[in-house]
Amino acid sequence: MSRRPGRITGLTSTSHILRTELQWDSLGFDPLIDHYRVHGIRGARSFEPSPDNLLASTVYPRWVHTGLEPEGHSWSYQVVAVSAAGLIGPSGRGLVAKAKPSITATGTELVRVGSFDARTLEFQYAPAAYASIPKTYPGAVFEHTSGEEIGSTWPYLLPGPGDAWAGNKVYRQRWSFELDALNDDPQLAIWLVDTTTLVSTLSIKINSTLLPELPLPIGATKGSRSGDANTNPLLVRSFHEFAVDRALFTPGKNTIEFSVPTGGWVAWDAIGLYAP
């Protein structure tokens, strides 16, 4: 007679913006495990696994809960194993975890371009007319000033030197805006809908100060033709939020310049500067 799988042990979590990564100890091959079932409910409370709270099934001892709220709400999780014979193991020790809160939800907006909505569609040439970018900007420089309707003149892709279609150039995207005096170090939020499969970095210069280059994830290269990650799960979104020394800004006009010095294009979701 087949044995029932054992309890799941070692359930842990790693928090990110809009997602939580879960992992646990593998149960091995006696009995042979067909898959694991991940159950969860929003909030920090105990519950029993049931079909109503089944989030996903996976053959691996890990799973990523995506599409979470930018506020970083808590979720309670349980994982059970199902054997090749169809027997369901008991629930193990549950886990309460929460995604990392985003400054876009917890901070005060100072200035922003685009909407943090997993879409490029409000930007120039989105979702697929990338070939127009080198024709419109032969000098490889984009200039934008807040206070204008800059979304419609902000190209949805910022090309890099690995992009032959854009002339293998380093393009520069300059964003100018007005700020009052800052009392605290602001946070810069950069959300991307997708990136290429090239190893790429994003360069950020605030006024005259160049920040350390930001490594970018290997993307799906689908964001050049598809502008909505809500409907296309193949896009690889990424979220970059970090504090910036307020001394880099001055009361009045400021400029942030973006470029991709290594690799290929980034597809913008939105960029914003926030007071914590």
Rank of each mutant, 00 (worst) to 15 (best):
Y36L: 07
S259M: 05
L210V: 15
A189P: 03
A56M: 13
V236G: 03
R37Y: 00
R37C: 11
T145F: 07
R246P: 01
G167M: 11
V199M: 11
R112K: 07
G43K: 06
P155D: 09
Y156P: 00
G272E: 08
A140L: 02
A99Q: 01
T106Q: 08
E148K: 07
W154V: 03
S26I: 05
R237D: 02
E21P: 00
G264A: 14
I190K: 06
G227K: 02
A44K: 10
S83K: 07
L158Y: 12
E143A: 10
G160C: 10
L179K: 02
G147I: 04
N168H: 11
R19L: 13
R112N: 04
I17K: 01
A220L: 07
E257F: 08
S152W: 04
R37T: 02
T12M: 02
W75V: 02
W154E: 03
F177A: 06
S203C: 04
T262Y: 10
W268H: 02
Y274E: 04
Y77K: 03
K205Q: 15
A189D: 13
F177L: 10
G40Q: 05
G72S: 04
R19T: 04
L188Y: 10
G86Q: 06
T108D: 13
L110V: 00
G252D: 07
D52K: 11
D52C: 01
T231H: 05
P261W: 09
L188C: 07
S176H: 05
W24D: 03
S15R: 12
D184I: 08
R7W: 04
S146M: 09
V244S: 06
K253Q: 14
L22H: 09
S26G: 12
A129S: 09
T195C: 08
R45N: 06
M1E: 13
V111N: 03
A118P: 00
L214T: 12
K98P: 00
I150T: 06
L55F: 10
A166S: 15
L198G: 00
S208M: 09
E71P: 00
H240V: 05
G107M: 10
N254K: 09
I103M: 01
V111H: 02
P134E: 09
A267L: 02
Q23F: 10
G272D: 10
G219S: 03
K98I: 00
